[in-house]
Write a protein that binds this DNA or RNA. Structure first.
Lengths: 228, 228
DNA sequence: GGTTATTTGTTCGTATGTATG
DNA sequence: CCATACATACGAACAAATAAC
């Protein structure tokens, strides 16, 4: 006798679940970039021992959300302009690669899924749930990485995605909007479903350039605010 | 009073040092792909507790050298043809990206360092120390990633390098040679020090294609051997 | 198919080393 | 230089899940 309502939530290790919770706390702004994490306090807070907590921390370090210096401590990754430039430049390269691999594998299911994810993104924008917007945007872009049938690429995209979300979340939290967003993915989706590779190539470059510029602008403004 | 002879070997955590030892054991063939790691035994063998050992394991998992299934166990990553194709295709993309970034940053120091690393590789080949050959080859290729001034790229290259070494080491261990190797990097180095980007681009593609083909050939032969 | 070993996952208490004020 | 807070590490133990019999 199965229990369909409960689902398969049970078979994770503690570490994985704590990692999820920490990730959520960081994206939600409960843990602000630069703040220190103290193991004992967090362990008690989550109701677990230091072992699983350390594993969760380790995982988030690999995702780029936390930085650790031995014997000193763990902190939420600081935002920096050079880091965001690195993220977008690498992402441009990888997403181009992903589209190249996926280009001839696009079928009806791919197109349907792409449109559904776009719809979900639009719904999230309308609901004004900032964090959900970010998740949906990432989910939309993830499709091509999934379609590329390249395990290693997908894994690296996962790491990049985490870092990216850190910046997008900070941007959202600072001022509730994200820019001209409702139509922001129209041309991207159109190109991704279209038949012209040069158009897709140009669209990726343009899309990444816009994203990078907006995030850099936000960081600069944030920096001036701190200096003042 | 300092002790210069000892050097700064002391400030790592146990986990990091165990990870180094495990890595070496894997590349040396002491831990063969597919073999299981049992925590208690390894902990005793290294003279540490299970805590630090688990951290070391975790680290090697992130590097792609080990795979773990919850509650079941940890094993050395199996070799597969699809994985090697992924490694080389991604590496082609990333190394092209790295060279594009580093291209205009190449100075006298870069050229000197490149030649020195090539010399070190040749010396290792002459000494017939297989594992040293791999390290030197990786070290040579690492230069462009270092010169690209891109922290994130360097980090990802580190992960890729580990996976790559796993295959190269298996190849070496199977049959002591690696192919036509002494002149194998001549054209690569020449292109990297030259002034023609198209030549460099073609060289990367060619170099990666050769490497991928040889490793795939080795894997196919190895598979047939197992089947027989 | 059920039982039992083995191994991982986790906890707790404690000790030690390191960094920071 | 000292004191304190915290990270790191140990070791024994129990729980949970897999795997083999």
């Amino acid at each position: 006798m199965s229990v369909p309502a409960v689902g398969k939530l049970q078979k994770q290790t503690f570490g994985a679940r704590i990692a999820d919770a920490l990730r959520k706390a960081i994206f939600a702004g409960d843990l602000v970039p630069g703040s220190a994490l103290i193991e004992t306090a967090l362990a008690e807070q989550f109701g677990v021992s230091r072992g699983p907590l350390r594993e969760a921390i380790r995982q988030l370090i690999d995702e780029g959300l936390l930085v650790q210096v031995p014997f000193s401590g763990t902190r939420v990754t600081e935002l920096s302009e050079s880091a965001i430039r690195e993220i977008y430049s690498l992402r441009t390269t990888l997403e181009m690669f992903a589209f190249r691999l996926a280009w001839d594998r696009r079928d009806a299911a791919f197109r349907l899924e792409m449109l559904q994810r776009q719809q979900a993104l639009l719904a999230a924008i309308d609901s004004a749930d900032e964090l959900e917007c970010i998740r949906r945007e990432m989910h939309l872009h993830s499709l091509v990485y999934e379609a590329a049938d390249h395990q290693l690429l997908l894994e690296i995209w996962g790491g990049l995605k985490g870092r990216l979300q850190l910046y997008l979340a900070a941007n959202y939290l600072a001022h509730g909007r994200h820019g001209p967003r409702r139509t922001g993915h129209d041309s991207f989706v159109a190109a991704a479903l279209g038949d012209s590779w040069p158009v897709m190539e140009a669209e990726i470059l343009q899309h990444m350039r816009l994203g990078s510029e907006e995030t850099e602008r936000f960081l600069k403004a944030r920096k001036e605010q701190v200096d003042a």
